[in-house]
Amino acid sequence: MRRTGTTRRGALTATGAIAMGAVLAGCGSDGDDEGGGLKGSGHADARTASDRSSAVRSETSLRKKAVGVTASLLGQYENVLATHPATAVGLTPLRDAVRAHAKALAPTGAASLEFVRTRPADGPREAVKALAAAERRAAASHTAALLDAPPELARLLASVAAAASALSYLLTELAKETKA
């Protein structure tokens, strides 16, 4: 028969969990005490507002760059689909994913997505391989932008970079199956 109630092991586990929560909460403090005693003063408020506006400009700039990379990639997909219609079955869902990434990365209030079509490689297999390489470059670009991105944008960029890597893999496999 199993013992019911609070056991010593259960009590120690709960105490350890509470202590770990307290330690982690303490590690998450921002250290906002750096104002040199100016906390609450007009000078500190002005500096904070300036920092916020600079962060917003930086985030908008990062988003525009990321959207540019993704829009270029979307243009390459559109071009390959227009030039090699036989690839449509495999490329259409991937293109739709790239379009969704571009919309997610776009700054709020941004205009519609514009992209430039480029000339794809000669054969369908080479065109799909070129798309795989473009996806790898996009993943690298989004990953590099993580260093300067605020936390929320960094999470989005990391997700899009991971998706671009996965799409690159899928395109590489699709290129192997595509007739020359």
Rank of each mutant, 00 (worst) to 15 (best):
A158D: 13
L171D: 05
N79H: 08
P150W: 12
V23K: 01
I18M: 12
T118Y: 04
S112Q: 09
A88C: 07
L74T: 04
H43R: 11
T118F: 11
A164C: 10
E59N: 05
A88Q: 12
A180H: 07
L157V: 05
R155F: 15
H101Y: 03
L157H: 07
V80H: 08
L24G: 02
K103S: 14
G5F: 07
S58D: 01
I18F: 00
T118V: 15
R137M: 02
G123S: 15
E135I: 06
T108D: 14
G28F: 15
S159A: 13
S61M: 10
G31L: 01
H84W: 09
P151E: 15
P151N: 15
T83A: 11
A55V: 00
G42A: 13
T92K: 14
K176G: 05
R9D: 10
R3Y: 15
L174Y: 07
H142W: 15
D32K: 08
D51H: 04
T4I: 15
K129D: 03
N79R: 13
A133I: 08
L24N: 06
L113K: 06
R119D: 06
G21T: 10
A104S: 11
A44T: 13
R119T: 15
K65G: 10
T118C: 09
V89G: 12
K179A: 00
Y77R: 06
D122Q: 11
I18H: 00
K176N: 07
T6D: 08
T118Q: 05
A127Q: 06
D33M: 01
R155C: 13
P151R: 15
L38C: 05
A138D: 01
K179Y: 01
A97M: 14
A14P: 03
G21L: 14
V80I: 12
A104P: 06
G35Q: 12
A111V: 03
L94D: 14
R52I: 00
G90K: 07
A102C: 03
R137E: 12
Y77H: 13
A55N: 02
L91N: 12
G36Y: 13
A106H: 04
E59Q: 03
K176Q: 01
G37A: 04
E78S: 14
